[in-house]
């Protein structure tokens, strides 16, 4: 097979390289170099005092966080719980609504636009809105529960370490379900209509159609949605910082908020850098694992 001709005249590739140069320079200095230097910082101890020298400590930051730092272990656990909750519910709801709203009609387009709306707000705004809704005394949620006679359910959602992480997960799901739904809608719309028609001829119920057509056909989309949602839950700094700032009793501390606290309030720059490395390793291995699982599953069908 002959490739389409794409001859570049002499001198042109030089100009092309020059065109890529400014972007590359900024990217190299402010992305690649910091990412690499973070590895170096991770093996140091430094309190940020310009008069003191950073001290090389080898892997001691890592051994310390896994053997002596309860808050770190707790944050890691919180982050996993938060991820599992959000991935399950956000993926489930977005797939459900996408299935309902796959066709393009006036109503479905309106609902999709409405469901997507929270995505355009800032995490800080969303956090403040939900702080108000969760307010134990004046918030809409508890006021409604009281009015309906469920006084015992009107809890201190964000102030109680038993519920705070769940309350945050609800907010996160509210925030991004619409965005994931739109991705699913795009995926579902690409499934050939004949497959559903054939299933209907065979007398398949809605559930059977979903199980045997939509779900297997949409698996690649699920892989994308799950991966992106996972990354979101590890990036949820803005929301957590706004709503609980890691409290009460570290019950909502996730890795990014802990890193932020260790660096900018604890002045342990080396230690925080080491935790960043762990964060990156966790996120990368999780996304790799998910892609593998979902792809294998897909291949088997």
């Amino acid at each position: 097979m002959r490739k389409p001709k794409n001859v570049i005249r002499k001198g042109e590739s030089k100009i092309l390289l020059l065109m890529a140069l400014p972007a590359f320079a900024i990217y190299a200095v402010l992305y690649l170099y910091p990412a690499l230097s973070n590895l170096l910082w991770a093996t140091r101890r430094w309190d940020g005092n310009p008069e003191s020298e950073p001290e090389a400590v080898g892997f001691r930051n890592f051994t310390y966080m896994f053997t002596n730092d309860d808050v770190f272990i707790q944050s890691l656990g919180n982050n996993f719980r938060f991820m599992i909750l959000v991935v399950i519910f956000q993926t489930g709801f977005s797939l459900l609504f996408a299935t309902y709203l796959t066709k393009n009609t006036r109503t479905t387009i309106f609902l999709r636009t409405l469901y997507f709306f929270p995505t355009i707000l800032s995490s800080v705004s969303v956090g403040l809105i939900w702080l108000a809704l969760y307010d134990p005394n004046y918030g809409f949620i508890n006021a409604s529960l009281n009015a309906l006679g469920f006084e015992s359910l009107a809890l201190n959602w964000l102030g109680d370490s038993r519920y705070a992480l769940y309350a945050l997960a609800v907010t996160q799901v509210w925030f991004h379900t619409g965005q994931m739904m739109v991705i699913y809608v795009a995926g579902l719309q690409q499934i050939p209509q004949e497959l559903y028609e054939a299933a209907q001829v065979d007398g398949a119920s809605k559930w059977q159609q979903f199980k045997h057509v939509s779900w297997p056909m949409a698996l690649p989309t699920t892989a994308v949605v799950v991966a992106y949602t996972t990354i979101q839950t590890f990036r949820a700094f803005d929301l957590v910082y706004t709503m609980t700032n890691g409290g009460p009793l570290n019950s909502t501390e996730i890795l990014v908020t802990l890193i932020y606290r260790n660096a900018f309030f604890g002045y342990q720059y080396g230690y925080a850098a080491a935790q960043t490395v762990v964060l990156v390793v966790v996120v990368l291995s999780l996304t790799w694992l998910q892609r593998r699982t979902l792809r294998l599953d897909y291949g088997a069908k």
Binding site: Y31, Y33, F237, I259, F264, A272, T276, V280, L284
Partner: peptide, 14 residues
Amino acid sequence: AIPGQVNIIPIYLL
């Protein structure tokens, strides 16, 4: 592939 947060500390120090 690398999440942007990896840069928090080095960018701040830089």
